[in-house]
Design a protein around this nucleic acid. Structure first.
Length: 488
RNA sequence: CGGGGUGUGGCGCAGAUGGAAGCGCGCGUGGUUUGGGACCAUGAGGUCGCAGGUUCAAAUCCUGUCACCCCGACCA
């Protein structure tokens, strides 16, 4: 077909400059705007709706597992940060401070929270007396601040929205179970609802959360081959319990410190959604995430529009009645313009209805994921739309997983192999992707990989595709099998 | 905070060696169009990032300053 743009399913360095593509896609889909304050973004309604869908899906799962929402203040006294040594060292460089209020200098300056372990730890110490008060399972939906040096919309902003769960338990075992339970909830949500395949695993000590005993993550591959940490869950041990004196009287009449956990995902997931599914036509949303699942566009000359609308309106009502999130675009624009616009916005399925369709008692369905157009009888339109939405959801996950696995390299044994691989990819302008490497457990070996390749240890997957026998750096016996990648 | 780059209508840009602020997109109005980003006509919109300086004359040269972008160090 002359003039028709090639449908590009993958973003590669050859096809476009990825970071430029990312920013363009966000703008074209009308998700956000820049604020006057450096590094802060405005969520426009279309962007915020994505967050609302993430909130709804996760909130449901949190409640099903016995968690309750609460809200804690945004301002945190400086002294709170001193109570856990690693925590203060980790966050101090990136805290914004309030030093003055009501025209007077404050006695103690207040930080805009970068996370809420401290204030929640403080409150837990007030709330917990007995083993009967445990476990305490709290979640907070909030904004947090981290004054990062470099920012990128959704992925790294000075202020961001997130969810942070905080729990306290009587035993280590129970707290560790909670840590892994929430990690699994993240995996299940991100994979089934957002259609983003992830690796669950444990962070190496150097990548641990400030103040945690163990940090776990889910890691996703973006279309430039880089890794994005899509969610984290921490076992905090008794570090915060000791810092904030969170103790309980156990059944045996002994005063004990609780074991705490914390876990979170942020609006960064929106960035992941864009970078995993987007293509040269813009945003592409999996049906379960799409605020608008079906866009209906009437076509054909206006003088025939009445005849079209006689079938168009009832079809839309039927789709609505079937629980499908459907919207009609009746603006006076040329159809091609509207097609492109809704493709940029990521709507998974389009329904076209014109005079020729009315004659044939059909409509045209167009899939966002494949570009495929199929005529469908009006009688079967609703059921076909339903099954197609499900199919698109599954297909988008499968495509993302194929992409990830195709760009995952399992056969590199040494740092020299890795460097040669990276050099070859750069020369051939291919994605370097992720590399599975053995690790002896020595921090120095991990650091050397980072130094020489800019690849960092993403996590130690629970269930790696293969187990590596030798440390990729030193060649000694591997204690762990690690995903190495460039990361956001 | 280092290294590089850019600031000119809403957006994207052009404006060598100083000499009347331009183009494309978008926007307004009227009309013709409408099955993959339509066309004609006619309009509106800019103290050229900011502050100094040189000059008869500065978007253009000089000094300072601010903002943003890219590459590094930090990070969900």
């Amino acid at each position: 077909m002359a003039g028709e743009k090639q449908f590009v399913k993958e973003i590669t360095p050859q096809s476009v400059d990825f970071s430029r593509w990312y920013l363009d896609t966000i703008q074209k889909a009308d998700l956000m705007d820049y604020s006057p304050v450096r590094g802060c973004i405005v969520f426009k309604p279309d962007g915020y709706e994505l967050w609302e869908r993430i909130q709804a899906g996760l909130d449901k799962r949190f409640k099903e597992t016995g968690h309750r929402n609460a809200y804690f203040p945004m301002l945190i006294p400086e002294s709170f940060f001193q109570k856990e040594k690693e925590h203060v060292e980790g966050f101090n460089p990136e805290l914004p401070w309030v030093t003055e209020a009501g025209g007077e200098k404050l006695e103690e300056r207040l930080a805009l929270r970068p996370t809420s372990e401290t204030i929640i730890g403080h409150m837990f110490s007030q709330w917990i007396q007995s083993y009967r008060d445990l476990p305490i399972l709290i979640n907070q939906w909030a904004n947090v601040f981290r004054w990062e040096k470099r920012t990128l919309p959704f992925l790294r902003t000075a202020e961001f929205l997130w969810q942070e769960g905080h729990t306290a338990h009587a035993t280590e075992e129970e707290a560790r179970e909670e840590t892994l339970r929430m990690l699994e909830i993240y995996r299940e949500f991100v994979e089934t609802e957002m259609a983003i395949p992830v690796w669950k695993g444990q962070k190496t000590p150097s990548e641990r959360f400030a103040g945690a005993v163990e940090t776990y993550s889910i890691e996703a591959m973006m279309k430039d081959g880089k890794a994005l940490q899509a969610g984290t869950s921490h076992y905090l041990g008794q570090n915060f319990a000791k810092g904030f004196n969170i103790r309980f009287l156990d059944k045996d009449n002994q005063l004990k410190y609780v074991h705490t956990t914390s876990w979170g995902v942020s609006t960064r997931l929106i960035g992941a959604l864009i970078m995993v599914h987007g293509d040269d036509r813009g945003l592409a949303l999996p049906p379960r995430m799409a605020p608008v699942q079906v866009i209906m566009i009437p076509v054909g000359p206006p003088k025939l529009r009445d005849r079209v609308m006689a079938r168009f309106d009832p079809l839309m009502e039927d789709l609505k009645a079937a629980g499908i999130r459907v919207k009609a675009d009746l603006r006076e624009e040329t159809p091609g313009w509207k097609f492109n616009e809704w493709e940029m916005r990521g709507v998974p399925l389009r329904v076209e209805l014109g005079p020729r369709d009315v004659e044939n008692n059909q409509c045209i369905l167009v899939r966002r994921d494949t570009g495929e157009k199929l005529p469908v009888s009006l009688d079967q339109a609703v059921s076909t739309v339903q099954s197609l939405l499900e199919e698109i959801q599954v297909n988008m996950f499968r495509m993302a997983k194929d992409f990830r696995d195709r760009n995952s390299h399992l056969d590199l044994e040494s740092l020299e192999d890795l460097k040669a691989h990276i050099a070859r990819c750069e020369a051939e302008r291919r994605l370097a992707g992720w590399v599975l490497g053995g690790w002896c457990g020595d921090d120095a070996c991990e650091a050397k990989v980072k130094e020489e390749t800019k690849f960092t240890a993403r996590n130690i997957p629970f269930d790696p595709p293969v187990r590596k026998q030798r440390c990729i750096t030193c060649g000694r016996e591997a204690k762990h099998t690690v995903w190495y990648a460039r990361a956001y």
